[in-house]
Design a protein around this nucleic acid. Sequence first.
DNA 1: CTGAAAGCGCTAACAC
DNA 2: GTGTTAGCGCTTTCAG
Lengths: 338, 338
Amino acid sequence: MVTIYDIAKLAGCSPATVSKAFNNYSSVKESTYKKVMEVSESLGYTPNTNARALTTKKTWLIGVLFSEDTGAGITHPHFSEILQNFKMRSSEYGYDVLFVSKQIGNKEASYLEHCKYRGLEGVLLAMDRNHVDEVQNVISSGIKCVSVEDIYPDVPTVIADYRMGTLQALEYLYLLGHRKIAHIACPLTSVAGRERYGAYLEFLNSKGLEVNPKYIIETDVFSHEEGSKAAVKLLQQCWDDLPTAIFIAYDDIAFSAMSTIQSQGFRIPEDISVVGFDNLKLSCYMSPALTTVHQDRATIGRMAADRLIQLIENKPTEDALDVRIPTKLIVRNSCARA
Amino acid sequence: MVTIYDIAKLAGCSPATVSKAFNNYSSVKESTYKKVMEVSESLGYTPNTNARALTTKKTWLIGVLFSEDTGAGITHPHFSEILQNFKMRSSEYGYDVLFVSKQIGNKEASYLEHCKYRGLEGVLLAMDRNHVDEVQNVISSGIKCVSVEDIYPDVPTVIADYRMGTLQALEYLYLLGHRKIAHIACPLTSVAGRERYGAYLEFLNSKGLEVNPKYIIETDVFSHEEGSKAAVKLLQQCWDDLPTAIFIAYDDIAFSAMSTIQSQGFRIPEDISVVGFDNLKLSCYMSPALTTVHQDRATIGRMAADRLIQLIENKPTEDALDVRIPTKLIVRNSCARA
DNA sequence: CTGAAAGCGCTAACAC
DNA sequence: GTGTTAGCGCTTTCAG
């Protein structure tokens, strides 16, 4: 391994000067800077982060904390896109991204221990409620955090404006004349589930529509399978007074719900209109193409990185603690006039 | 920050002993071991990787190299699932997973420089051909590598058996009586594209079927949009002699191709049968549900981790350089008798 | 079984 | 402008 000592020797200067050259100290003379760079180039020198971090206490390392349950986490198209953008933005600032784990060597460890072990300067939180306590420990430890999935007290949050999106979807259905609008909610343990459900109730209220409990189905997990189950249940429990439209809180669930509804002999949108939420890539290839609420995951990922790094570097910000990214209704073919 | 010195003082022993305790040296007396653990527990001690790595030269760090072009990389459902499993398996062995980037602090760097900078012990390769030279540099540097996407000389590879999968798909169509089988290939710059296309030709040959160039469409990128374009082109160029079945080398492309074919007035499977490849989660929610070739991404991810860590730890292996994971045909509703 | 001491590669005062 | 020196937190001989 090439070190600054090797370079110092060949460049005819001290290790300290080499270090300074690499850290762009203005005091280093132009000519010695060049000499140093020349030599290190020829030796194929790369600085060693571990040594650097040991003295500076700066690791340039950010952790990401994702659920690892099947179907969740980075496997989920929503999060993978956020992660991708988060990673790219972090890199631009010079920070590297590491998966937080529960393992140190061959020992089980807590998330917090792992974060400390690696000297993570900040952590992106994208965990479900299944591990709140552990996550709360990380937050309480003082490590800088930003969340893109759940809401924790005092932790900056970058999430799509779920209320806005829900209202956009429902307003659209309302304009098409729908008054009997059902709702298939995603798990109410999630912010997405709660806020979309809350906005649904708010909307009905604001329009003076009655809240029919039979029109509301709550799913247990974020998964395709749930959609079929929910659709079956919905149709069953209001067979005598079917809704004319369904607002489904999550595209992935909408896909399977649609397919189930169709297999029960209903036409979409002629018999029942459907609006989803998320605008997953495939929603346009459903038949009919799904009308849904788009959320801007690229912006979420990038902005989460911006905020986290602001925090890490103690930069002032004017952003609110809870930042909401505007949504947009994407109209396709899954809705018709009532 | 709590260090071994703090612990040594309180536990009434030397820092060296603390270190030994934490590294499970058998020479440490049971009672002092307990004392050390007790104290470090109460102080909330966590060892510091940077210091550790500096002396041991072992970072317990593995890099993952993914394409960052839109639609590729971890955003791609295929890779995100591989990555998820790779990460989980690596953690079990005590290795942490870091994204390789092209940035060191605020300086642009090569992948190799970044790997050296972070002291990565191994790298998972999942890059497209757009950056072969850079990837080749990493490989040549001696850093241990395993590929799940492309094939590089002397680099262990864990990929699904694309030939097997293709043959399964085509054999099935053949049994249904299809003789005019078209092929929409994914980019031939990829192993997936080449091998599936190659197996397609091999199959036609083996059955004594004529290769009709009009029945073959090559797409340029892995994306939904390509599917529509390819479908339009295919239908156009063999309007007077349509195929009765299409083998589409990639589900994502199949989704949009199907939707385009249907919008042109053809029924699937009555007029045209379709088989895809990959068994993406959503293939069962297409209408009709897509018959496709399943590849076992969980196994690929896990096995890639196993192999990489074997390499890192110089463990002997009996695995071939190029490991192929068996595929399975998943029969749904997109094919009918010819 | 335990401890002293050297050193991993680098940075940061402080002298010069 | 440049060099000397100490030290970051840990592991690892080697004595004892």
